[in-house]
Amino acid sequence: MTCSNCSIILPIKDQGLLKIRHSRVSLTPALEGLGMLSEQMKQEHWCEGNIVFRYDSRSQLEQLVNGLARLPQECLSRMQVVVTGLQHVEGFEEWLLFGQLQARLQHPDLVSIINNQNFTSHMQPIVDYKLNIIGFEFLLRPSQPDKSFQPFRLFEVAREAGLHAHLDRSARISAIEKSATCLPAGIKRFINFLPSTIYNPAYCLNHTFETIERLSMNTVDFVFEVVETEEIDDLNFLHQIFEQYRTRGVSVALDDVGAGYSTTELMNCLQPDYVKIDRSIIDGCHHNSDQKRQITGIVESAFRFGGQVLAEGVEQMEDFEFCRDAGVSLAQGYLFGKPEPTPPSNFILSRVV
């Protein structure tokens, strides 16, 4: 089985063809109205109902795309495009929505980072109520100083460009591989994933399990966190993803509970193994009665289905002490360590002794 969302990213050549197709309407009148079917735009030919333009430079391709952007929105929303070389093999074409091609042309540096996997993972410690490190969360970071990026922005552009499934899978595998070089068995590895990038759990997650098996690691050491920037519409599908992880021995976590789309109702529905309370609720909680009530309510709900609760973004000892007394069993934040390329030296030494 193959999936276009997991395939390689085909490069945009400096000389080639831009093909256009639309599922519902003929684009010919609109293109003629913009003067885009003229000889000046180097129309190459018509091919099986597609309109095909030739371009001879990157700037000319950008001019073509800017011209197409003047079409009515009802045309653009359903229009598909593909960019190929002058000599290409049929069947290896990557059809994109028009907006995805626009994003790839507008952000070539970030697309290059995604394509070449110029990223690595930093590790932030997770501690128990005795302040012992029990695991690390793996967070995406640049691997080269001259190829800097903000992780949120990288995923934002990836989503606009139709590359978020590719990036999510690559980042997940990169984190697993990094953990194999830095951590001993028995230490939990918390790794983020976007459920919207998984189309067939049984197939899409194979890359994850194959990597763990290839590196002779134990699936029980892994916790995969649901991180989502859009509302989850299909909870049954998310349950399928959770089940796919759990049947292989992997635990699951719900991130940022209490903020955005990660509501307590979602937590009670999914019943994750780990519940991570959002930092906005943790910060300053020791002197805020509303935050205290929220934390206590989350702990009580998680206790009913057996989920472990983790406090995120802990920076003050007073906040940690309140959370610990309220029944929060794990914590993470600058109070215990910032994300770093390697585990702290005292952790490594304690594992050697």
Score class of each variant (00 low, 15 high):
N236H: 15
E315I: 12
F222P: 13
R189E: 03
V309F: 03
R172P: 01
E177K: 15
Q150N: 15
G33L: 10
K42L: 09
D319G: 12
L64N: 02
E312K: 02
G162L: 00
E156L: 09
D283Q: 14
D290C: 05
P344L: 00
S38V: 12
E177F: 03
V250C: 08
I191M: 02
S23G: 12
H239N: 13
V127D: 05
L110G: 07
L18P: 13
L18G: 10
N5D: 11
L205H: 09
D290W: 06
A180G: 05
Q106F: 10
Y274M: 00
T28S: 08
L131W: 08
W46M: 13
I282S: 05
P145K: 11
R104V: 05
R172V: 07
G35E: 11
R104S: 01
K147C: 03
G85Q: 13
N268G: 12
G337R: 04
V328C: 04
S38R: 10
E213C: 01
T84Y: 11
G327F: 04
R78M: 13
L27I: 11
H88L: 04
L68H: 08
R172G: 07
I9D: 06
T342E: 04
I198P: 09
A253H: 06
E160K: 14
C6M: 07
F136G: 05
